[in-house]
Design a protein around this nucleic acid. Structure first.
Lengths: 223, 223
DNA sequence: CGGGCACTTGAGCTTTGTCAACACTCGTGG
DNA sequence: CCACGAGTGTTGACAAAGCTCAAGTGCCCG
């Protein structure tokens, strides 16, 4: 990224923090106010002025947009430590919704920008955030070019990396959200998961709990 | 975006400049050196240290990456006025290749960063660039969720917007590049173009010259 | 004029989507 | 405590979109 500092550090912060609250230390935390949302609450809506930036402390958030034709696209699943609301235009392109009860810190965008013009450390962190965001979206574009089993496997490995309990996921989202994130239908998601289970790559216990039995198999899936 | 200034301005600059050279005025131009590459030359490669930022003055550039399984993904087609090489990590994730004879300005990334810590106008422009980039990749993610005719139609409209001569495109890239950009096969691209021609939405004169006969039809394509 | 490359077209197949039925889970109220 | 119902997930049969492989066709440039 443009400023190399902090990226490695930040991405470490992102992982393994779903249960524990994320640490409070970055500029956004200092300027921001703590706020909670209950499950399914809308944090902000598509097309609203993008004047605030959020960081997840606990719980999970999804960002999504509804397209002209009615299709829904999930932009990201945000877990503790993740930032969202950092948009490239002055309106939010995606809306943000709480997937679980959620605690966030909210900071005014202008305040962060003002801070970063004086404090180069804060500027670095802002660059780091937008750089991470760019990288994330690029990886998503990659994902959308893959086959269904590849998308599912990649998704599971990503979640395993970001959620606690390395090989036994407790997914915070329903199948429909996974489908809209991966650009598949809910049926294909379901079928592909059972396919992977039949191959003994994973084990399902209830819809939301997934045990990654053979992660190596997931990594080298072609079909 | 984080800094609202300059975005509208910059995106205007991007359009309608394929024949005329792009203006030389931004910080990158002041710090940068003019350089030319001949058709098919590699400007930089995947995984090389990302220490330079480029702006197209004339000609066209594609950025692309080759995936583990051999598939190729085009990240962007860069036309006069477009910036490329602005990466989110310290290595280039995409390589950049000249599609035609190409003139670019090259600036050292560090120099631009250094400049932007003192000059807030330069900082604004850097934010604007990365913001545009983020927006562009988000739109590409949208594109990859569409049907083949939608992708082609969207692509044609985008190119018509960015190339001179509003409704009569002279595409700088071969079919394979279009396919890799849109996540389709070359056959599907070809078939879809003939489909659109049969519907009289477009007219082909030679593979590279496409007349947008009924742009309105392209905008409301579902299948 | 001929060779090579880019593009187009066709036939068959694979993957994914669609539509419909069924199963499971969990909370509520009888 | 059990029965019900809504929401969520799974499965099946079929249709459609896009991919693969294999010929062609046309165009550019020597």
């Amino acid at each position: 990224m443009l400023t190399q500092t902090k990226l490695a550090n930040s991405s470490k912060q992102r992982s393994k923090l779903a249960d524990a609250d994320a640490p409070i230390d970055a500029p956004i935390d200092i300027l921001g106010a703590l706020k909670t949302f209950s499950r399914s609450a809308e944090i902000y809506g598509q097309n609203e002025p993008a004047d605030r930036i959020y960081k997840v402390i606990s719980g999970a958030v999804r960002t999504c947009r509804v397209l002209a034709n009615g299709r829904r696209q999930i932009g990201a699943f945000c877990l503790p430590g993740d930032t969202f609301g950092l948009e490239a235009s002055d309106k939010y392109i995606f809306s943000a919704e709480a997937m679980t009860q959620v605690k966030v810190v909210v900071a005014k965008r202008n305040a962060l920008i003002a801070l970063s013009t004086n404090d180069s450390g804060a500027a670095d962190q802002l660059w780091s955030l937008i750089g991470q965001e760019l990288l994330r979206v690029q990886e998503q574009a990659l994902l959308l070019g893959m086959t269904a089993p590849e998308r599912i496997a990649t998704f599971l490995l990503e979640m395993a990396d970001r959620l606690p309990c390395g090989d036994c996921l407790e997914l915070p989202m329903p199948r429909q959200d996974i489908a809209d994130y991966l650009g598949l239908t809910i049926e294909t998601v379901s079928r592909t998961l059972t396919l992977l289970e039949n191959r003994a790559a994973i084990a399902l216990s209830g819809a939301r709990r997934i045990h990654l039995r053979r992660p190596a198999d997931l990594r080298r899936i072609n079909a």
